[in-house]
């Protein structure tokens, strides 16, 4: 009796899964829906996949396509809320609109990184630091904060996450954005003006202030 009921439920679910046209349409719909909230295509697809797998794991008879669809969407909704709570929204979407890349993920012409001069090849340390400080000041506050915690204070990722109260993946996104922006800014503002070197003494203090402000 019980195995009969189960097989009925199973066939009800599999009936939907075996309908390739319906499933692919449903999947597209779910992905579009998810991307309104989470613009990362890869994450959106993962979440949709999870929601569909949930339909297999939690076997339940469905009267028809509409019932199946709304049930899967309810599952999707929960997955998305979980994800947003876990990830925090703002930084998660930040990585997606990387203006440095085209749709295929290749560097845009004007964003292609150029090689820097090495300090050994005549670049003075203090000049480097002057430009770095200038560029750090242009970063959004949270990027500058985590970058300095990591590279200047030398804190471990786990410690930074606890301190700033963000997830590890948010931290990686912030550090990535910080490095990308710094990398670009440093190339654009490469100064060889010796007068700038006189500012060097104040830099260490300023750097410390940046960190204190951030905290």
């Amino acid at each position: 009796m019980q195995s009969n009921a189960l097989s009925h439920v199973e066939s009800s679910v599999m009936q939907h899964f075996n309908d390739v046209g319906f499933m692919s349409q449903l999947r597209e719909q779910m992905i579009r829906f998810t991307q309104t909230q989470l613009r990362d295509a890869e994450i959106a697809e993962d979440i949709v996949q999870e929601a569909l797998l949930g339909a297999v794991k939690n076997l339940k008879a469905f009267a028809g396509r509409a019932a199946f669809r709304s049930w899967v969407f309810a599952m999707l909704k929960n997955k998305m809320i979980d994800h947003i709570r876990k990830q925090g929204r703002a930084p998660a979407t930040q990585s997606i609109d990387a203006e440095e890349f085209n749709a295929k993920g290749s560097w845009q012409q004007e964003a292609k990184p150029m090689p820097w001069q090495c300090p050994e090849a005549g670049l003075k340390q203090e000049q480097f630091m002057v430009i770095l400080e200038l560029c750090l000041n242009k970063l959004p506050g949270n990027q500058a904060q985590v970058f300095m915690m990591r590279e200047f204070l030398g804190l471990a990722c786990a410690e930074i996450c606890t301190e700033v109260d963000i997830t590890e993946s948010n931290l990686h996104v912030l550090l990535y954005r910080a490095r990308m922006n710094l990398q670009k800014c440093m190339a654009n503002n490469w100064l060889h003006d010796d007068r700038q070197a006189t500012l060097q003494k104040s830099i260490k203090n300023n750097l410390m202030n940046t960190i204190k402000k951030g905290r």
Binding site: P113, P115, W116, Q125, M129, L132, E151, L182, Q183, A187
Partner: peptide, 21 residues
Amino acid sequence: EHCRNFSKNIEQLSDSMQSFL
């Protein structure tokens, strides 16, 4: 080449900070 430049540049960012410190 571009990603190589990027990778070297961000390494230098970190190295310069360390040697500054």
